[in-house]
C-alpha cells in the first residue's frame, strides 16, 4: 500500500489510473471501508494538497466547490448559503460536527450511497460535477455520477475535481429534508431535495424534485415537479406532489426502515421541503 499526496489534478488522475488506486478527500467513507476490510487500496491518493481543491470560488454565474472542501466550510460560506440553502441543508447533515470537519460533497457523491444527503440537495440545485481524467475534463449533472449503490460512472483515472453550482434565478428557494430516527448521527431513511422558482405572483415557474434513499440511486420524478409547476403550491398541489413522490419511490426493506414506511415518508418530506423552499423563495 502506498500513500500519495499529489499537488496537481493531472498528477492525481495519473495516480488514480493505477490498479487499486482510491481517492482520499475527507476520508469519512474510505477509512471506514478500509477498516472493515471492504476495500484494500493499493494506492491512496490524497486530494487535499492539490492547490485550489480546498477552496470555494465564486464566478459571476456560479459557485465552484473544490473536491477537498469539507462540509463545515460550506456552512461558513455566506454567499453560497444564501444562494442555495438547500445544498447547505443537505451537506450539513452528513454526519457529526467531527465528520463535517472532513467530509466533502464530492466524496459524498462519489461514494455513491443511495442515502447520501448532499446528492438530492445538489441535484435539485442543478449542480454539475467537473470530472477530470487522463483524457481531459468533462462536466456532467451530479445525478449522473452514481449509477447504483457504491458504483459510479467515473472511468479509471477520473476524479470529481469540483462541484459547479449555477447562481439561482430570482425568487428561487431550495430545501433538503430527510428522515432519520435520531436527530443527528444517522443515515437518511428517506430524503427529498427541492429547488423551485416563483414568478412575481408566487406561481411556481420551475421546480426540480429529487428523492434519496428510496431507490438504488436518486430518483427525479417528473410528475413531482409537474405537480408544482403552474401552481401556487396550494394544499392540492402539495398533496399531488406527495403522491407523485410516493408513487415514484422504489425502496427496499432494511435495517433502517421498511419499504412501506419509506414510501409514505418520502411524500411527507416532499410536502414539507416544498413548503420550506417556497418560504425561502419568497424571502421569508
Amino acid at each position: 500500500m502506498r500513500f500519495e499526496s499529489p499537488s496537481t489534478v493531472a498528477a492525481a488522475a495519473a495516480l488514480l489510473a493505477e490498479p487499486g488506486a482510491r481517492a482520499l478527500a475527507g476520508g469519512s467513507d474510505l477509512l471506514v471501508q478500509m477498516k472493515s476490510g471492504m476495500v484494500q487500496p493499493a494506492v491512496i491518493v490524497d486530494l487535499k494538497r492539490i492547490a485550489g481543491l480546498g477552496e470555494i470560488r465564486e464566478t459571476p454565474d456560479a459557485f465552484i466547490i473544490g473536491a477537498a472542501v469539507p462540509g463545515a466550510a460550506l456552512r461558513e460560506a455566506k454567499a453560497l448559503r444564501k444562494a442555495w440553502p438547500g445544498l447547505v441543508d443537505g451537506s450539513k447533515l452528513i454526519g457529526s460536527t467531527q465528520i463535517q470537519g472532513r467530509a466533502t460533497v464530492a466524496g459524498n457523491l462519489c461514494n455513491a450511497s443511495p442515502a447520501a444527503d448532499s446528492v438530492p440537495a445538489m441535484a435539485a440545485c442543478g449542480a454539475m460535477a467537473v470530472v477530470t481524467g487522463p483524457n481531459g475534463s468533462r462536466t456532467v449533472p451530479v445525478e449522473d455520477i452514481p449509477v447504483g449503490p457504491g458504483r459510479t460512472s467515473l472511468a479509471k483515472g477520473e476524479l470529481v475535481e469540483a462541484i459547479r453550482l449555477p447562481k439561482p434565478p430570482p425568487r428561487t428557494g431550495s430545501a433538503y429534508l430527510r428522515f432519520t430516527p435520531r436527530t443527528e448521527m444517522d443515515i437518511a431513511v428517506a430524503s427529498v431535495g427541492i429547488a423551485l422558482s416563483l414568478d412575481a405572483d408566487g406561481t411556481v415557474t420551475a421546480a426540480k424534485v429529487v428523492l434519496g434513499a428510496v431507490g438504488p440511486k436518486v430518483i427525479i420524478p417528473e410528475a413531482a415537479a409537474r405537480a408544482l409547476i403552474g401552481t401556487r403550491a396550494d394544499a392540492a398541489a402539495l398533496d399531488a406532489l406527495a403522491a407523485a413522490c410516493s408513487a415514484a419511490a422504489t425502496p427496499i426493506d432494511d435495517k433502517r426502515g421498511t419499504k412501506e414506511f419509506r414510501i409514505r415518508v418520502v411524500g411527507v418530506l416532499a410536502r414539507r421541503a416544498a413548503e420550506k423552499a417556497i418560504e425561502r423563495a419568497k424571502g421569508k
Binding site: 500513500f3 499526496s5 476520508g27 477509512l31 471506514v32 467531527q98 470537519g101 472532513r102 448521527m185
Partner: peptide
C-alpha cells in the same frame, strides 16, 4: 473506529475531526 462516537476527537489544523478517520500520513 468508524467516526460514530467522537471519543477520538482532535483538532486538525483548526477543524474538529475524528482522528480514527484521518490517516496518520495526512498529519504531515
Amino acid at each position: 473506529g468508524t467516526g460514530d462516537c467522537g471519543a477520538c476527537s482532535v483538532i486538525l489544523d483548526g477543524r474538529l475531526v475524528c482522528s480514527c478517520l484521518v490517516l496518520a500520513a495526512e498529519a504531515e
